[in-house]
Design a protein around this nucleic acid. Structure first.
Length: 295
DNA sequence: TAGGCCATCTGGTCCT
DNA sequence: AGGACCAGATGGCCTA
């Protein structure tokens, strides 16, 4: 139950997350979706009938010997059993949709409690999960160290990106290949950072993924938290798609959407963009943080 | 136009 | 048996 959102009681109604969405008892938040899914169902049925027609056509085709061509799945006889299968498939589709929506709702909740929350630039699913993981890690580190982060120092350090994200092993803040080439028409390109370089003082333990590895060109986004922060390298796992997830926060060509549009981009004034939402917190310094961010 | 992200459908597998 | 979960396929939308 720990993983269930207490603020989302509808997600806790069933023993298994998002489970058993009967058509009569869809959660309120999903009723609208249910309505939509009805039309989806109709569309699906239309698709289905199209497919049936296709298969009938196919069956009517004949090979050189005049025998019916045996291509593709054999058509099931449109009997009662077939109808039942069809209905059950549609029900399964609806449940699957609801399940995924529940998953997305949970992800949206996560987005809101994760440090970098923006209404205008939504974190992708993978980003949200990574950020959450790093957030948890950072909180753990801070707690285990018994430290309280110096927010003002953090803000001071954070505000000018160049000071925050020094390129490891270099006096220059711009990584090789990124020198002075702003891809954002004036806004500073996103910079690689070094957790070890900038924030070692805040954490004594290495990250769960091996500490502060040398820069390899694939970095996680900078993160600021409600009073606690982490700038941790997130080792890119072996995604089949290569390294684009890691590179997206950088000014690397090919994947610059977030670097250009998101909260991660530095405003022309060199501060955080205006749509950054630092969520409420108990620290008194929050106001100062917000002041620094929004002034 | 390519690439990234996403929603949806679908069939297989596992669990109750 | 039926539902949940999962992953692959597909197509749409958006952005650089």
């Amino acid at each position: 139950m720990l993983t269930l959102p207490f603020e989302e009681p509808h997600l806790m109604r069933e023993p298994r997350f998002g489970a058993s969405y009967s058509r009569e008892s869809l959660p309120e938040s999903l009723e609208k979706e249910h309505d939509r899914s009805n039309s989806d169902m109709r569309e699906a049925e239309e698709d289905m009938s199209d497919r049936e027609e296709e298969e009938e056509e196919r069956e009517s085709e004949q090979d050189d010997n005049g025998l019916p061509k045996k291509r593709g799945p054999r058509k099931k006889k449109p009997g009662k059993e077939f109808e039942r299968t069809k209905v059950r498939r549609h029900e399964a589709n609806t449940r699957e949709r609801c399940r995924m929506h529940g998953l997305n709702d949970a992800l949206e909740s996560l987005r809101k409690v994760v440090p970098c929350y923006s209404k205008t630039q939504k974190l992708s699913k993978i980003e949200t999960l990574r950020l959450a993981k790093n957030y948890i890690w950072a909180l753990s580190e801070t707690l285990s160290a018994g430290k309280r982060p110096d927010l003002l120092a953090f803000v001071q350090t954070l505000s000018p990106y160049d000071a925050v994200y020094p390129y490891p092993g270099s006096d220059v803040n711009t990584p090789p290949g990124h020198s002075g080439s702003s891809v954002d028409g004036g806004a500073k390109p996103f910079r690689h950072y070094s957790y070890s370089g900038a924030y070692e003082p805040y954490y004594e333990n290495p990250s769960p993924e091996g500490g502060s590895p040398p820069f390899d060109g694939q970095m996680s986004p900078p993160m600021n938290f409600n009073g606690i922060f982490s700038l941790k390298h997130d080792d890119p796992p072996d995604y089949g798609k290569g390294s684009h997830y890691g590179m997206r926060y950088c000014s690397a060509p090919g994947r610059t959407a977030l670097a250009h549009n998101s909260m991660y981009r530095v405003s022309p004034e060199g501060r955080f963009p205006y749509d950054l939402h630092v969520r409420s917190q108990s620290f008194q310094a929050q106001g100062e943080v917000n002041g620094s961010f929004h002034n």
